[in-house]
């Protein structure tokens, strides 16, 4: 895909280009006139103090919330008026800050559910085109097993997802969204509450994904992780765009430090 994309290509056809986004919950302006662009093949960080509006912005990009104003282009298609179900078809996948596995389904089935364009998801095809359904299902299960290997959950393939630990759930969500093979992925705090050994593993997996050409937008509070992963970082505070830059520059920026301290006070 966009492996080794030049800076010019990234500029031309971004994976996501959102402008003027606005969403208020009652009186709370969670996101206000926010713009963000995720280049093709880019690894972009999104940071900001608690309550800055990062997850709300994500939910607008992912279609869960409809913005009150603004536009969202996903792979050059206007998506602000379309709902969450349409996002994966545009090439955008997401994970959740609080993981959402299908708890009673097995780990393997959770992942297989991510498969797209399955003939067997059409009601009558299960009777009329059973041969095709069967072949696709076998292929999907094979792919899901590969993805479980990729996130090292293969030994739990037949357990119900409810038995997974918090960190394992984050990995399961990653495998599940990869099953849909989106070109861009929104990751909401994939490392929150994860032990240091698993953290290194998650870092290695998302780096591998980016190297495969996937564009990634990452929300993360762990600055060390952000520094190691991201090409560029956008800072939000109070629902607005504050600044952006290389991770190291941003961390030194007095305005950013003040925003974090201000939020803590």
């Amino acid at each position: 895909m966009a492996q080794g994309a030049t800076a010019a290509e990234m500029e031309q056809k971004p994976a996501i280009k959102a402008q003027g986004l606005k969403l208020a919950f009652g009186g709370v302006k969670a996101v206000d006139d926010m713009a963000i662009t995720l280049g093709r093949g880019e690894f972009l960080g999104l940071i900001g103090p608690n309550g800055a509006g990062k997850t709300t912005l994500f939910n607008m990009l992912a279609g869960t919330y409809r913005p009150q104003a603004g536009s969202i282009l996903i792979n050059d298609v206007e998506a602000s008026g379309r709902d969450a179900t349409a996002r994966i078809g545009l090439g955008l996948g997401r994970t959740f800050q609080i993981p959402k596995p299908f708890p009673q389904m097995t780990v393997l089935e959770n992942v297989v559910t991510g498969a797209q364009h399955q003939t067997g998801e059409r009601l009558f095809a299960n009777f009329l085109r059973y041969g095709k359904v069967k072949a696709e299902e076998r292929a999907a299960i094979g792919r899901a097993r590969e993805l479980l290997d990729f996130v090292k959950l293969s030994h739990l393939a037949h357990e119900p997802a409810r038995v997974l630990s918090g960190g394992q759930r984050k990995l399961l969500e990653l495998a599940r969204v990869l099953m849909a093979d989106p070109s861009a992925i929104l990751l909401d705090e994939p490392a929150a509450g994860v032990n240091p050994a698993l953290l290194e593993f998650i870092i290695s997996r998302v780096l591998a994904l980016n190297a495969q050409g996937k564009s990634i937008l990452l929300i993360e509070h762990n600055m060390d992780m952000v520094t190691r992963l991201c090409h560029r970082v956008v800072v939000m505070a109070g629902g607005r765009y504050l600044t952006e830059g290389k991770p190291a520059e941003v961390a030194r920026n007095p305005a950013v430090v003040e925003a974090y301290l201000g939020a803590a006070a």
Partner: peptide
């Protein structure tokens, strides 16, 4: 399977295009 997924977590299922 999609039916079960929707019953268990509609938001996650719709993020997967269901």
């Amino acid at each position: 399977r999609v039916l079960r997924a929707i019953r268990e977590d509609e938001q996650a299922a719709s993020a997967l295009g269901k």
